[in-house]
């Protein structure tokens, strides 16, 4: 299945901003993170299609995953 992953802030260093992955039914965000060689400790916020998700969230065909390190401001 096709999964789009969007990376932000310093997670882009050495990686593309947007990565398209071909994944299997039942795969979770954890697997995508592993493929992209991102240390889960660097991740602060995960979204699937703009809604809150976590590392164990199961992906489905066409999902967009957004991955952020700790960010803040205001």
């Amino acid at each position: 299945m096709d999964i789009k992953v969007k990376l932000f802030a310093y997670l882009r260093e050495g990686r593309d901003k947007v990565v398209l992955l071909d994944m299997n039914e039942g795969d979770t965000i954890k697997k995508a993170v592993k493929i992209l060689n991102i240390d889960p400790k660097e991740i602060s916020i995960l979204l699937i299609n703009g809604r809150d998700a976590n590392i164990d969230s199961i992906l489905v065909q066409g999902d967009t995953v957004s991955i952020f390190p700790p960010v803040g401001g205001g």
Partner: peptide, 25 residues
């Protein structure tokens, strides 16, 4: 040691919020 004050804000300033706020719609 805090990710926001130690890394995020120094590197990108408050403008780092543009993408996360937009991604949330």
């Amino acid at each position: 040691e805090d990710g926001v004050t130690g890394t995020g804000l120094p590197a990108y300033g408050t403008a780092i919020l543009v993408n996360i706020i937009n991604e949330n719609g």
